[in-house]
Design a protein around this nucleic acid. Structure first.
Lengths: 297, 297
DNA sequence: ATTTAAATGTGCAAAAATACACAGGTGACT
DNA sequence: AGTCACCTGTGTATTTTTGCACATTTAAAT
């Protein structure tokens, strides 16, 4: 028997006709789509697509398969809609502490899904730069950038995200071109205020720029992003913020890319509570499945 | 979206109720089944099975899922029956050379599938102990135990198989018990004739047994297997032979297990011929999907 | 009660799948 | 015609999945 999951890839490619387009929607690399399709073709011993003019066009046999794949998709969707029943029996409240930008720009956009599953649970999102201490029960679950060393916590690495330099085209047109890191010396920066937690990877920038010309600073990333969007200068932003803003483009994406880990912690004695457990699963699933938006393109 | 292929595993487990039974039919380890089911459960955020009394029983939600999974299975089956059309346009003949036992006991049992796909192609199976040389065009495709070093051949490692010692219970009851390798000194052996190709892994046996008491020998593995089945002595057999014979049990499976590779070769200038290509794909697919019977339990 | 056999669970090693980086090639727009 | 953006293909590195060996548990049989 062939791998049923390959039909998901087949369907997407049959609809988009481009490896890259299909890959984007499936949340994988284009090479993965190509290889899964190739595997399906050899397994079924059929040619499903003709590769012409950099586009994948269905063959006659591919069209036959499409009908069956669509039927299976219908099944999978009806399955989800039937089983994705809300758990109204669970009631209570969960407080989740996250870094400011992660909470306000990423997690907030997905809380509706949690609400749909568990309408009885109040989801409290504490997204602040101040370091909330989960130990003092300020929050039931904490997502942090550094692994908490102390406290009786269950901590797992939930995922990673990337930071890049972003600027508005309007800014870039009015300023000297940037082709290497040292060119940044002549540019304006939007930056954090000093008391942010130190990011070790920033020494790359420190070496290249002796005296950064900081024209605006804030503890609030959304403020920085909005300032950059208006052409004030160059900002260091998480990709899940910068990529979402149409008016921003990356600066030196090849030279500067900072990866940071996301840690998810719960109290040892709270980890078995149903409400806490469901929220924990929701968060780690979310971070895993949205990996692509957190890492950026 | 969840992994559609996990539903195949779910279906099998829902029907067999045991990890090990489902694993056997799926051709994987029981741990893999357990992990795929666990992955599906966390992805769907449901409990599909209750683990009671070492058996997996469907929950209510699991039963709901079963209906959808069965529907998807129907689709996948109808898909196969529609697309698995015979290619009557391909005509010709293909000669495949293999080791004797592999050809007569394994490949011969699967040739009907090839015939079904390609009714126009005559499949000639040359299963002999004499080393056929593919270079002289005695065969179009060769499956060998050693990688051919010379000749303009395209060779890939197609898979592996295992050898074990086998004996009939009737023999074992009438002879001293065997708990370690040295106990074999007091036993009767069914063996190859001397000119068989040397198997380096056999030095383990050579060390344990100074003077093996060989009571019967043959170049033909089927003859050896039949002799062993009748209680003549202990034989070294491929698992795909020994495991198929109800009357044989393994001897010292923990102490003696020999793995050998299977190599598949075609001529460089023949590799693009449709008939040769289809046969090559058929053989490598077959060896891959029957991995479990070749490796044994 | 003891033994035996069969089933599930766990940690580690091997294998496979995937991402990543880069090369090459094609069409679109100057 | 040349440049540019975009898409696909190939080889390597990383991550994930799977297999394997072993521990543990439970039911059945002596």
């Amino acid at each position: 028997m062939f791998n049923w999951d390959d039909l998901r890839f087949f369907l997407e490619l049959a609809r988009r006709n481009k490896l890259s387009k299909a890959a984007l929607r499936l949340g994988v690399e284009h090479t993965t789509v190509a290889r899964r399709i190739a595997a399906l073709e050899t397994k079924l011993n059929l040619t499903l697509f003709k590769r012409i003019n950099r586009s994948y066009q269905l063959t006659d046999e591919g069209r036959k398969l499409l009908l069956h794949a669509e039927a299976m998709e219908k099944n999978s969707l009806s399955l989800l809609s039937e089983l994705e029943q809300t758990e109204t029996n669970l009631e209570g409240k969960i407080r989740v502490a996250t870094p400011e930008a992660f909470g306000s720009q990423f997690l907030a956009k997905h809380c509706h899904a949690f609400q749909k599953y568990y309408p009885g649970i109040l989801f409290e999102l504490v997204a602040e730069t101040t370091n909330m201490t989960i130990n003092r029960r300020d929050a039931d679950i904490a997502i942090t950038l550094a692994k908490p060393e102390r406290g009786r916590l269950k901590t797992i690495k939930a995922g990673s995200y990337r930071l890049r330099l972003y600027a508005a085209p309007s800014y870039l047109q009015g300023h000297p071109p940037i082709v290497r890191l040292t060119d940044l010396n002549q540019h304006n920066f939007i930056w954090y205020v000093d008391d942010l937690l130190p990011i070790p990877e920033l020494h790359i920038l420190d070496k290249a720029i002796q005296n950064p010309n900081i024209v605006f600073s804030s503890t609030n990333l959304t403020a920085q992003a909005n300032a950059a969007d208006k052409g004030l200068g160059i900002a260091l932003l998480p990709c899940f913020v910068g990529d979402q803003i149409q008016g921003l483009t990356t600066v030196l994406p090849g030279e500067l890319s900072i990866m940071r880990d996301l840690w998810l912690s719960v109290h040892e004695d709270q980890s078995n509570q149903p409400v806490v457990d469901k929220a924990r699963l929701f968060l780690s699933n979310l971070i895993a499945s949205e990996r692509r938006t957190l890492i950026g393109t």
